[in-house]
Amino acid sequence: MRKLDPRTKLLLLVVINVVMMTGKITGIFVPVRIVFALIPFFLMMRETWFRGSFIYFFLYLYVFLFERFTLQDIHPVLLIILLFTTGLLSRFLAGVMMAYYLMKTTTVSEFVTSMERMHIPKVIVIPFAVMFRFFPTLKEEWQDVKNAMKMRGIGLAGRNPLDVLEYVMVPILMSVSKIADELSAASMTKCLSVDGKRTHIAKVGFSFLDIIMFLCAAAGLFAHIFLGGVIGT
């Protein structure tokens, strides 16, 4: 199975976020939104993450129907509570899923290779790649800190919030600055600090699916800009 090119994934992420977060939610944009909500679902099914993709599918279906049929002219206070659950999810969920897919399926070497093909300077590519790989690590660190606190019987509830912040942030920052040192040692073995052209063994390139996805994204952007979905027109 050919993998999707990282550039396609990035483009899709941008377009999904543009359409979902700033686009209209009525009229011709109903089918557009449905298509873009289905893209992450389809991509996740392709990776055979059945459980995740079905949870996403039904959550989105619920939110979508809710937004369509119950959010019209009801009491503002109730509306704001409902919005926090449905409106927020219907805007963020697809983008978050796409970002998750992007991070899970793209290796650092693929990402760096495809960015270098686009001649993006190293000073931007490397921090970006590090950042993408770092979000999952941060989650692990947070788990570890939580476990360590539980083991020593330090609860977070009912404390001064500033103390809580200190108890959580200090250990995370400590290990983060150690990880930074380790990563830069590891990067030596990958010759990242050497000037000159590097070679790559990661295979990236556009396939048939990439072209379809590109067309989808282009159509979505076209609808967004020329059919009145865009803000500022």
């Binding site: 970006f128 590090v130 950042m131 770092f134 990242l192």
Partner: peptide
Amino acid sequence: EVKDLINIGIYTAL
């Protein structure tokens, strides 16, 4: 240096 770039990436993420 690469170390600087890695630091940028990590702290931006956090």
